[in-house]
Design a protein around this nucleic acid. Structure first.
Length: 951
RNA sequence: GCCCUGGUGGUGGAAUUGGUAGACACGCAGGACUUAAAAUCCUGUUCGCCGCAACGCGAGUGCGGGUUCAAUUCCCGCCUGGGGCACCA
């Protein structure tokens, strides 16, 4: 009887499906445990071997917890709205709903092959009306709420309106525009439109204006991904930034709670650091500078003083006397007013240049660029005139969009000053060497008038106080994080349940949800940068006769639907809640059910979501909690980041202008140079290691290379290789289906784990999979012999065998618990190797081994479990209990080092003391040899570890 | 540019992070079984030196310094691969 994995896996997968083995109930006497994967976007390319890495890890952990007696929720679904499906539709005319459904079917088939224990009855798809109804509903909750800074939580907007009617907004500073101030009387006097405009500045989901990548030729807004080197990926048309009306989520109001919440959850320190840096809380000051500039071409004309000051944000007000220039963002609204006539043209040209550049390009640019406006800011303390420049490295979205340049203390400012020959003032004496800026806070200030001699750190408060006295500055907490853009001018996303009438956004009534996405004829954009929905007048006017709520009126009609759609992260911000109660039509998730399942106990996914999805879903959870819909305000108790499986691409090298391919090893410059060749990627699936299968290559791509000639190295063609992202276009993807078919799901699962630590990125290499497959065959032979058949027996286990078993129990349990799945697989191998060496085929030992193996290789475990005569499923067999008594040793072989280098070993009893050790060590022959008759300076004895003799 | 992260034999990795560097696999080499192959089993395998071998010696965890009885692990400075940077998901 041999290990026939194909039949075994098919049989048990069908059986588990039929018996509902993975169905999870919302009611159980067992403790709950919620294991979640980041759900996939169902792309047309299907799964490659990188996708299942996290799913296998979570599957193992779920099964492990189940064996340990938990009621485990382990669901799966699809993040199904998004740009790629829409692009596919534009190119092929296939409706996104259709291509998405096909892709999902394909994914599902691939996932099923691997034998996951998902409860598929709970599947969610974010693009289905039954799901996005509740995405829209949650949007309305955010729309109808504001963040009460006094109570530090989201509250209903109706409470705010009552407050305005009684007290105006004195207690509630307007987060959208701090300059909005009004009394109760004024509030009551406002028109409906004025009131609504003010309320929009408070809403957690609000409408405003923001910059997008605008492609005039395509008449559409482009995602960053669709812009390559400043032009559109499709067609290569120019792309500029343009302001459009956009929806936003006021995530900045949650900045502090998103920071403090990190203390309550188990994310890696790196992840917490990334989120902290993204939020970017800083303490500084805003300082107003008077601006003077000459508004005439006549060089002798008197400069005029401007009404509006230049407001800069700085974290270092202490360096105020070191300011040698100001830099404002090219988008800054003052530029137009302050630029002098002689600088006008240069400034305009520079702004045009910047318009074509993305924020990223602007920050990454090594070349320093900028333009002088001709205007000056006046230092309030010594009246020094400071030139005002514009430069792309200052972004409009952060702080006030203007900074003060202190070259001696800031590296970027320093480079800027050097580049434009701006004289550098030194305010830190010997701490500045004239070559590099020094960002210290510990130097004593010089050339700083009333601050001379004061340590910079202490000067900050002094300057702030003075500025406040003078009424030209105030302390300010700033965040790098901006409010989250929440609308897309696209088709394939959730429609907003919002009706516009006379510039007022009216929310649809809940009973109108879901607001269905209509069928469209074409996916091309609507007019003026609107999305495709703007072209469907029937759809957008469907509520034209609906009575909209109007203050003190009978209501208004004639509203037009919002034609933007929501972004991809809308549906993924709350999906973990829907899994709990996926079929509920009354609410997004029954409160009793969410109280039971509560937080996700283990969330597994890649770091690429560090600052997107993981911040948004944290915010949504906090808002839902504040509004009383759920009882917890952090969604994920523990996050495990899986590493990325990279592709290892293979290259062949064709001599330029020929059809000759040179083996990689020969490109050392002796006969051939790599520069004389065109490197061409070849499909990794016909390269064995680095050796090319020439015959297959010749047949590849319909015989494109059929006539190729090869210059071989020792009879072989050796390919070059490079590690990069796994992608179809790079011919480096490996499909799990083929591996599962060849080796079985159990082998595949264990091999993915064996590859290395789950949280580490690594290139895929199929080569080692044989070793894991051999291991499973070896395990099988502990039960069945090809010739003899059954070999397992009922004999009693020896102490030695029990030692092997219990060492394994401890190892597997510890390793699984700490997500060290690769070492656990090695632990299984060691155990099976040892049992084989001991010729142990005893049921008593093997049975426990099978239970431990179940999370990793469920099919073979279930099969052998049955073969041992067990009635029930191994899925619910109790986890074996580790017993210390079987593994206790009485002595240990200590390594003995001389000056830190191991020279010999001595076996000593475990309970020995240092005093007893010393003479034994000194008496040792090898130690004697190294001592050469001298006394050791010191003998270090670390109990249970090692001995070191210092000579 | 900014933020995060990794670098250990021919290869993936181990050492649960101050305490025997290279577990477990892959690959490779040699051998057993076989008419043969597959499968399986056994032996060896960090590098260098001496040697028939055992033993022994030296070097060694990206590079250069440092702390320590002891450093893959801690500190400082470099080099380099990967991920993210706000409309891919």
């Amino acid at each position: 009887m041999e290990y026939n994995f194909r039949d075994i896996e098919k049989k048990w997968q069908a059986h588990w499906k039929e018996s509902g083995a993975y169905k999870v109930s919302n009611e159980s006497s067992k403790p709950k445990f919620y294991v979640l994967d980041m759900f996939p976007y169902p792309s047309g390319a299907g799964l490659h071997v990188g996708h299942p890495l996290g799913y296998i890890a979570s599957d193992i952990y779920s099964r492990f917890k189940r064996l340990k007696g938990f009621n485990v929720l382990h669901p799966m679904g699809y993040d199904a709205f998004g740009l790629p499906a829409e692009q596919y539709a534009i190119e092929h005319g296939v409706h996104p709903a259709k291509s998405t459904a096909q892709n999902i079917d394909n994914f599902r088939g691939q996932l099923d092959n691997i034998g996951f224990c998902f409860d598929w009855d709970r599947e969610v798809r974010t693009c289905e009306p039954g799901y996005y109804k509740w995405t829209q509903w949650i949007f309305l909750q955010l729309f109808n709420s504001f963040y009460n800074r006094l109570t530090q939580k989201a509250e209903s907007l109706t409470l705010l309106v009552v407050e305005f009617e009684n007290n105006g907004n004195a207690k509630h500073e307007c987060p959208g525009d701090g300059s909005i101030k009004f009394t109760a009387e004024k509030w009551k006097a406002f028109s409906e439109k004025e009131k609504q405009d003010i309320l929009m500045n408070y809403r957690l989901a609000f409408c405003g204006y923001g910059e997008v990548n605008w492609c005039e030729a395509l008449g559409t807004v482009l995602a960053n991904d669709e812009v390559v080197n400043g032009v559109s990926e499709r067609g290569g048309h120019p792309v500029v930034k343009k302001k459009l009306r956009q929806w936003y989520l006021r995530i900045t109001e949650y900045a502090d709670r998103l920071l403090s919440g990190l203390d309550t959850i188990e994310f890696s320190e790196a992840m917490k650091e990334m989120q902290t840096n993204w939020i970017g809380k800083s303490y500084g000051a805003e300082i107003d500078f008077v601006i003077v500039s000459r508004q005439s071409l006549d060089v002798n004309a008197k400069p005029s003083t401007h009404n509006s000051p230049l407001t800069v944000y700085t974290t270092r007000p202490d360096t105020i006397f070191g300011v040698d220039f100001m830099v404002v963002a090219p988008e800054h609204e003052l530029i137009e007013k302050i630029t002098t006539p002689d600088q006008k043209q240069a400034v305009e040209e520079y702004i045009t240049y910047v318009k074509s550049r993305s924020d990223r390009e602007r920050q990454a640019e090594k070349k320093i660029s900028g333009c002088f406006t001709g205007a000056y800011a006046v230092n309030p303390f010594n009246q020094k005139q400071i030139p005002i420049w514009i430069s792309e490295y200052v972004l409009a979205g952060y702080g006030t969009g203007a900074i003060m340049g202190v070259p001696c203390g800031d590296e970027r400012d320093h480079r800027f000053a050097k580049h434009f020959n701006i004289p550098i003032s030194n305010i830190i004496g010997e701490h500045y060497n004239g070559v590099d800026a020094n960002p210290t806070k510990d130097a004593k200030l010089e050339n700083s008038e009333f601050l001379n001699g004061v340590v910079m750190r202490d000067a900050i408060a002094i300057v702030n106080e003075k500025l406040e006295e003078m009424g030209i500055g105030k302390k300010k907490v700033n965040y790098k994080m901006r409010d989250a853009a929440f609308s897309r001018q696209r088709y394939w996303g959730e429609p907003f349940p919002i009706v516009w009438k006379d510039g007022i956004a009216y929310p649809l009534d809940e009973k109108e949800l879901p607001l269905l996405l209509p069928e469209v004829e074409s996916y091309s954009p609507g007019p003026d940068g609107e999305g495709p929905l703007a072209n469907i007048s029937d759809w957008k006017n469907q509520y034209a006769s609906l009575l909209l709520p109007g203050e003190g009126q009978d209501g208004v009609t004639g509203g037009v639907l919002e034609t933007n759609t929501m972004p991809g992260y809308a549906g993924s911000s709350w999906y973990f809640l829907r899994y709990m109660d996926p079929h509920n039509n009354e609410t997004f998730c029954d409160r009793k059910v969410s109280d039971y399942w509560n937080q996700v106990d283990l969330y597994i996914g890649g770091t690429e979501h560090a600052v997107g999805h993981l911040l948004y879903s944290r915010m949504w959870t906090k808002a839902l909690c504040d509004l009383g819909h759920i009882s917890f305000d952090e969604p994920f108790r523990k996050l495990l980041n899986q590493g990325m499986i990279q592709g290892s691409s293979r290259f062949v090298y064709r001599l330029k202008g020929t059809n000759k391919f040179v083996s990689h090893g020969l490109l050392d410059g002796a006969a051939y140079k790599i520069e004389d060749t065109d490197p061409i990627r070849v499909d990794v699936n016909f390269v064995d290691g680095v050796e090319l299968d020439i015959e297959t290559f010749k047949k590849w791509r319909n015989g494109e290379y059929a006539a190729a000639e090869f210059i071989l190295d020792a009879g072989k063609y050796i390919c070059g290789s490079e590690v990069e992202k796994m992608s179809k276009s790079k011919f480096n993807t490996v499909n799990p289906d083929e591996l599962v078919n060849k080796f079985g799901a159990d082998t595949f699962r264990m091999y993915e784990m064996f590859l290395g630590p789950v949280d580490q990125s690594k290139p895929w290499d199929t080569k080692g999979i044989e070793g894991v497959h051999r291991f499973l065959k070896k395990l099988w032979r502990l039960f069945f012999d090809e010739i003899k058949g059954k070999v397992w027996n009922e004999e009693k286990a020896t102490p030695e065998e029990l030692k092997v078993l219990h060492r394994c129990i401890k190892k597997i349990e510890d390793d699984t618990e700490r997500y060290s799945f690769n070492t656990a697989v090695s632990g299984f191998m060691i155990c099976v190797n040892e049992l084989a060496d001991l010729k142990c085929n005893k049921r008593e030992v093997l049975e426990s081994l099978l239970i431990m193996l179940t999370p990793y290789a469920p099919h073979i475990s279930e099969e052998l479990w049955g073969a041992l005569g067990n009635k029930g499923s191994v899925l619910d067999a109790g986890y074996p209990k580790f017993e210390e008594k079987y593994v206790i040793e009485s002595s240990k072989e200590y390594p003995v080092s001389i000056n830190g280098k191991v020279r010999t070993n001595i076996t000593l009893p475990l309970d020995i003391t240092q005093a007893e050790v010393d003479p034994i060590v000194i008496a040792n022959e090898v130690v004697q040899k190294w001592l050469e008759g001298k006394e050791p300076k010191k003998i270090i004895f670390v109990k249970g570890k090692m001995i070191n003799v210092v000579i």
